[in-house]
Amino acid sequence: MATGGRRGAAAAPLLVAVAALLLGAAGHLYPGEVCPGMDIRNNLTRLHELENCSVIEGHLQILLMFKTRPEDFRDLSFPKLIMITDYLLLFRVYGLESLKDLFPNLTVIRGSRLFFNYALVIFEMVHLKELGLYNLMNITRGSVRIEKNNELCYLATIDWSRILDSVEDNYIVLNKDDNEECGDICPGTAKGKTNCPATVINGQFVERCWTHSHCQKVCPTICKSHGCTAEGLCCHSECLGNCSQPDDPTKCVACRNFYLDGRCVETCPPPYYHFQDWRCVNFSFCQDLHHKCKNSRRQGCHQYVIHNNKCIPECPSGYTMNSSNLLCTPCLGPCPKVCHLLEGEKTIDSVTSAQELRGCTVINGSLIINIRGGNNLAAELEANLGLIEEISGYLKIRRSYALVSLSFFRKLRLIRGETLEIGNYSFYALDNQNLRQLWDWSKHNLTITQGKLFFHYNPKLCLSEIHKMEEVSGTKGRQERNDIALKTNGDQASCENELLKFSYIRTSFDKI
């Protein structure tokens, strides 16, 4: 039985969820670079991206490699990797027998973001014989899940209580170790020597080791999670996991709180800001991140802002960003909400898709409305799209047979046209069989910064309504002859009103 693990408890099935942008060198404390989270699957090609990484700022997932063999891993080693800020997950990587050479110096898994409450997941690794993470000293947050690894031993010899604050939620089941077939031998045991430290858990006094050649490092209890030197002297209180010299914040392997210019500090002093819960960055760093993602459509890219001495992905609820200094300031009234469309555009074809934009005031991208039916549609669209004030790209209304009016965009005031449909149009209306009105132009103002209007096959939309939009939106004169079809717009509506004058002759039985 794995020490510190839980057996036999019912657990939810383990679901495996399925960018080499360097964020800056980590400095003297770390020998390499800070790398983003990685999802490495199918083959070993991307694994080489770990070569210079000291910190993975995010998670590391290595999974679904069915053609790899043990010899493929023999020359692979990433000794610079010290810390993973989120979680480490391995799933069905064939041929991998140990992690001792792959990650010989991995010391800390912070667990800032977890995989279903777990910071370390080893699942269905069919050839893994031992973990071998002999320098792993601290899992700051989260638990361990090690399950269905039929060859995995050296679990009962690990004292997880020396690595985690609590072992109650560890789930370590259905491994070879369960069948008591392992016969784990710690260093020196074969020669009758006791080389590794022994600890007591559940009444068992057991030597602690990761492999037959690597003991588990056990520091004096007084050192807590700070770690200790090879001689057993406690590291500085700002260290986490390990250090090369005692009581020196510049000799830590990793930091308990924050890293700044080669030393570990309790908090980031001005003019620095907390970033990702582990390091200090200056304003320029946060500003660069903001600008890199301002026009990016890459998933996970955030326009970072500053709030409460932190550089964070977005302002919290009730705050909006001051564009001059990136500071989050309290909103006066309802907060603006910028919604970034991942692929640059979004099609609204149902109430469900409209709900995804609920509360958005600025759309960074283009909207395509293609709704053919739905219950209580006008009210639903207004509830979900009615706060949109600005669209950076274009607005396209296409084959939306259920629409009679666009009044559900009740606050839309600006279409920038930074991206144009077919390279020309910022407003595009095609084949809307029941569209009769755009907006009530006596109450609604709309500016279209650039781009043209396109109207074709809107049989109940009168040309007068379209011409009014040209005047109000500032697009009059931009359109070419064929942009607004004269014969297919309003051709099934009563669009022309003329005053009919009647004269009559009164007659009676005795007068003409």
Rank of each mutant, 00 (worst) to 15 (best):
G32T: 04
E33C: 15
E33Y: 00
V34K: 10
P36L: 08
G37Y: 15
G37C: 01
R41W: 08
N42C: 07
N42K: 08
N42D: 08
N42Y: 11
N43H: 05
N43R: 08
H48A: 03
H48N: 12
L50A: 09
I56S: 01
I56P: 00
I56V: 05
E57I: 12
E57C: 05
L60W: 00
I62D: 00
M65G: 05
T68Q: 09
E71H: 04
D72N: 14
D75F: 15
L76T: 02
S77E: 09
P79K: 06
L81H: 00
L81G: 00
I82A: 12
I82Y: 13
I82N: 03
M83R: 00
L88F: 08
L88V: 12
L89N: 01
L90C: 11
E97Q: 14
S98G: 03
L102K: 00
L102I: 07
P104Q: 02
T107A: 08
V108H: 13
V108C: 03
V108F: 02
G111V: 00
L114M: 09
F116S: 10
N117M: 08
Y118P: 00
A119R: 00
A119Q: 00
A119L: 00
V121P: 01
I122H: 09
E124Y: 13
M125T: 07
H127V: 04
L128G: 01
K129C: 14
G132F: 00
G132E: 01
L133E: 01
L133Y: 03
Y134H: 01
Y134D: 11
L136H: 02
M137D: 06
T140D: 13
R141H: 06
S143V: 06
V144L: 07
I146G: 01
K148G: 03
E151A: 09
E151G: 07
L152C: 15
C153K: 02
Y154S: 08
T157H: 10
T157K: 08
I158M: 07
W160G: 01
W160I: 03
R162S: 05
R162F: 08
I163N: 01
D169M: 13
D169F: 15
V173C: 15
L174N: 14
N175G: 05
N175V: 04
K176M: 10
D177L: 13
E180G: 05
C182Q: 04
C182L: 04
G183N: 02
I185H: 07
C186W: 01
P187S: 06
G188V: 07
G188M: 03
G188H: 13
G188S: 06
G188N: 05
T189H: 10
T194A: 12
C196N: 04
A198Y: 05
A198N: 13
A198F: 10
N202E: 05
Q204G: 01
V206Y: 02
V206F: 15
R208E: 09
W210A: 03
H212S: 06
S213V: 08
H214E: 06
C215E: 10
K217Q: 07
C223V: 01
K224L: 14
S225Q: 13
S225T: 12
H226D: 11
A230S: 08
C235V: 00
H236L: 01
S237V: 07
S237D: 13
L240V: 06
L240G: 12
N242T: 07
N242G: 12
Q245N: 09
P246Y: 03
D247K: 12
D247S: 05
D247V: 11
D248M: 04
T250I: 09
T250H: 09
K251N: 06
R256M: 09
N257Q: 14
F258K: 14
Y259L: 06
D261A: 05
G262S: 08
V265E: 13
V265D: 03
T267E: 03
C268S: 00
P270A: 14
P271N: 08
Y272G: 03
Y273E: 00
D277E: 14
W278C: 02
F283S: 06
F283H: 03
S284N: 13
F285A: 15
C286T: 03
Q287H: 15
L289E: 13
L289F: 07
H290M: 11
N295S: 08
R298Q: 02
C301I: 00
Q303E: 13
Q303W: 05
Q303I: 06
Y304R: 05
V305P: 04
V305A: 09
I306A: 02
N309L: 06
N309S: 08
E314K: 07
C315V: 06
S317P: 03
G318F: 13
Y319S: 02
T320C: 09
S324A: 11
L327K: 15
C328I: 02
P330T: 07
C331S: 03
L332Q: 11
G333C: 10
C335H: 09
